[in-house]
Nucleic acid binder design. Structure first.
Lengths: 223, 223
DNA sequence: TCACTAATGTACGAACTAGTACGTTAGCTA
DNA sequence: TAGCTAACGTACTAGTTCGTACATTAGTGA
């Protein structure tokens, strides 16, 4: 998540009024607060109190609580898109490429629990903020293009047998990565196992890769 | 979910005062309201208005909003436990047994979207109500015992090669089933694909089974 | 340097919301 | 059938929460 800790660039004197900084600071704090308490549990006053500015500015820049949450979502999705764009697997064989992609997803989900919480919250509200966003419509994800290319190559070379398209494979990979973070509390409370235990991280990361590869390369009964 | 539509048993005259019926009716409506709006978004007044009783009775029987939500969770988890207890796969070979179990999980998740939403909500609140419940501690799940038996048999017979225990396999199966329902709104909005489209139901159900079997039976590099 | 506007702060209000004090009655039991 | 209590309803309050009217000032362009 883009943060605003650094006081602009060195040499540039910290101005008292800085619209960009104020907005970014509001977004940082709002991200934490919405992720912590959910949309209705989050308090606009609390967000304001934890910035260097006032509630007035939240309404000045974002218009209201709903639009603030939408802006928070837009930025959070932007971050994962950027990470996915860094992905370069064209030099790898399809099996290694898919494993690399799955591991990137795994790592990103683990490193951004706030993002997971925001997405969970947005689903409770039936994606109404995404629908109202404009910036966030059906713009897909860079990962999808990568998956498409890998799948094509994998099938061409005969390594992949599964009858699956890029979107479904993305869902399969995401489901494991997402669940592990999103449901860790209830899962831990009910089954006594912490899915995000650092000592088990490598285990689950391998498990994910094994699962995806096994699925894609399994011998299939006649289609 | 246990419902209270039927006016007791036929012949039994509907009494004006019926503690069990009132409590069940409150739980029914509260389940819907909490699932609809989240914990903080849910309104005690709204729950009361949609029952045949008043807010007073919610406090009389449950004590408060927190305890009401806990009671709602307890009942919802009870329902899935019951479903899992119906499961009888001892007569099936391990591969068929695991597929049957996965499909039962798939079906239950699809048929109980409110349950999924409640669990998502409880995770946003870090499972605090489960922790405070008593009824819901680390009591596991009937499905776990079934998985344990199938895994043992599968490994004994040499069919299963994966180094995975029952809890992790349960997580793998649940993640796909849960994500498909819990994240359908954001996934649909971002990728233009409805994961719960009835026309695709069989496709995803097969995909789940294929994935689990492929993972369990894949040829592994030397361990 | 001066005026203009974007950026900011203060103080407040209207509406909502969880929870409760108090009073009433249905239905069971002796 | 009388009386007792679990079950129920009404009306209210204290505290909260989103949002805004109004006043002020930093920084910039002419």
């Amino acid at each position: 998540m883009t943060s605003v800790e650094e006081p602009a660039r060195p040499g540039e004197r910290e101005r008292v009024r800085d619209a960009a900084r104020t907005q970014a600071e509001i977004l940082d704090v709002a991200t934490q607060e919405f992720a912590r308490a959910g949309y209705d549990g989050a308090r606009v006053d609390e967000i304001a109190a934890r910035t260097r500015t006032t509630k007035r500015m939240i309404y000045y820049y974002f218009g209201g609580k709903e639009q603030l949450f939408t802006a928070v979502l837009e930025r959070a999705y932007g971050v994962i898109r950027e990470a996915e764009q860094q992905l370069d697997v064209d030099h790898l064989d399809p099996v290694a490429a898919i494993r690399r992609l799955a591991e990137l997803t795994f790592d990103h989900h683990e490193q951004h629990p706030d993002f997971i919480r925001l997405v969970s919250i947005e689903n409770i509200h039936e994606a109404q903020h995404i629908a109202a966003s404009g910036k966030l419509g059906k713009i897909g994800s860079p990962a999808l293009d990568v998956i498409r290319r890998i799948l094509e190559e994998g099938r061409r070379s005969g390594l992949f047998t599964a009858d699956v398209d890029a979107v479904d494979l993305h869902a399969l990979i995401s489901s494991f990565c997402f669940f592990r973070v999103s449901n860790r509390h209830t899962f831990g409370a009910l089954f006594g196992r912490d899915l995000v235990d650092p000592a088990q991280r490598a285990h689950y990361r391998t498990m994910l890769g094994d699962m995806v590869i096994a699925y894609l390369t399994a011998e299939r009964a006649a289609d």
